[in-house]
Nucleic acid binder design. Structure first.
Lengths: 144, 144
DNA sequence: CGCGAATGGTTGCGCGCGCAACCATCCGCG
DNA sequence: CGCGGATGGTTGCGCGCGCAACCATTCGCG
């Protein structure tokens, strides 16, 4: 063996993956159970709710989602009557995506749930550590 | 909107997911390119290399992998001649999985790459912060 | 001993995903 | 104007995944 002292529990990508799975799956269960939504759909919904109407490309840049994911997520949200599309006059290739009333309701509901989830997490880690954690993750994710 | 000040960039599960994607995909490119391995296969290989022969169930407990993932990963690694199976005498339902020579070589190679990757990451975050990050992630992942 | 529950592992199925190819529209430059 | 490349978005394809159902073996308890 090359480096017998190198433990997987000290390998940050592994820890990120496991911690991410634990956290994401737990919250994913909420929007999946309540609205039958996928993770991509949740991210799109959240971005539209939080930052207002925008195009698919803008969502992609903000939400770190591949355009195919967005395309399929938007179609699914459209079928749920959560979002509306409107072709832009100034560039008829792109469309303005906006939340409809049911979408806004779902956003408010899930936003509350997300805030509660985050609060529980902070309680577990402690406010200061949770803040530090977020700061480091933001750096890792190039989100600065 | 319910809580217009709740930003996604402060939502830990989101940050974990994005940071995890960035880190995992970057390293995944290595074992995918060199050995055509999947993430599950890499985890199984690493555990067998690091901790020695064990059964699929033991890997599952250590590596946080669902048993179906392990089953398929083991079959793939077997086809690559990386692992061997041997039915246990004392319980003929389970089998002892062990690395073969090519598997050990791949483990050594990827272990070195992983250590280098981790070192670069530490250089970016600073040694102290990187250690804190790992500690918090371990707590989140229930790996204590 | 014998039967039902528990355990180790595999498999069929439907789904979300990433990739590459594609269509439509727009822009830049001769 | 017109043609080639760039851009916004969609789709076909193969794959890895999670779930539930399943097979074989073993365990627990009457």
């Amino acid at each position: 063996m090359a480096q017998p002292d190198f433990d997987l529990r000290d390998f940050t990508p592994y820890l990120l993956a496991v911690a991410g799975e634990v956290a994401s799956l737990e919250f994913a269960a909420v929007y999946k159970a309540r609205y039958g939504m996928t993770r991509s759909e949740w991210r799109v919904l959240f971005h539209l709710g939080r930052y207002g109407p925008m195009t698919a490309t803008e969502i992609g840049a903000r939400a770190r989602l591949h355009k195919t994911k967005i395309s399929r997520a938007v179609r699914a949200l459209e079928l749920k009557r959560f979002v509306s599309r409107e072709t832009l006059e100034e560039d008829r290739r792109s469309e303005r995506l906006a939340l409809r009333a049911p979408g806004r309701a779902a956003y408010a509901d899930l936003g509350t749930a997300a805030a509660a989830f985050e609060a529980r997490l902070e309680a577990r880690l402690g406010a200061e550590e949770a803040r530090d954690l977020r700061r480091m993750l933001r750096r890792l994710a190039d989100l600065d």
